[in-house]
Amino acid sequence: MTQGELPGAHPDERQMPEGRRNKQGIRIDPEVEAEHPPERAVLSALVKHEPGVLAEVSGLFSRRMFNIESLTVGRTIDERLARMTIVIEEPRPGIDQAKKQLEKLVPVVSVRELADDAVQRELVILKVNGDEPDKVNAITQMYNGETLDAGSRTITVELAGDEGEIDDAIEAYEQFGIRELVRTGYAALARGAEPTAKVTYPNKAPTDAAVETQEAMDD
């Protein structure tokens, strides 16, 4: 044995396992490598309505490199709580991980991934050139929008809808020349009597606040 050497077989002469995992740590059949393409998921989180929570949540997402498409936050009927709606695009394991990491933050009361049929709306305000007010109005009516401000040079309208509707509308306004626009990001609630605020895993008991909110919603 020379300096710094240990006894034992050469790496090529050892018992080796047969299997393999993919990059996500899932055992795979090397023939049919399992792929997880990114999916879009809407997460709804009830959080304590206190300073710093938004920074905590957005910091978490950037720190762990989760891809957020939009994040909105606002009050709820319970003044102690705020609701965040987060749209992320990640492979399935990433979405699950994001939910669990979010749930771990102390001010987060509950997290839920909403089903595809959840009610989802985004608001957009856009300002177009006012040269053709009649045509602008026609399009606004077609997309159930509302005119917020109309002057000789610009017209500002408000529209709400899901992603597809809004994209279509924006395209329709492009002919007039869009000067500025703002999109709020998604707000969403679960469909039907199903409460949106629900715990994601059984071990985290719903808190009083969450239960009260649910009850209030049921009423």
Binding site: P17, E18, R20, R21, N22
Partner: peptide
């Protein structure tokens, strides 16, 4: 990760 306990 691809070779970690791959049969387990």
């Amino acid at each position: 990760i691809e070779t970690f306990a791959p049969d387990a």
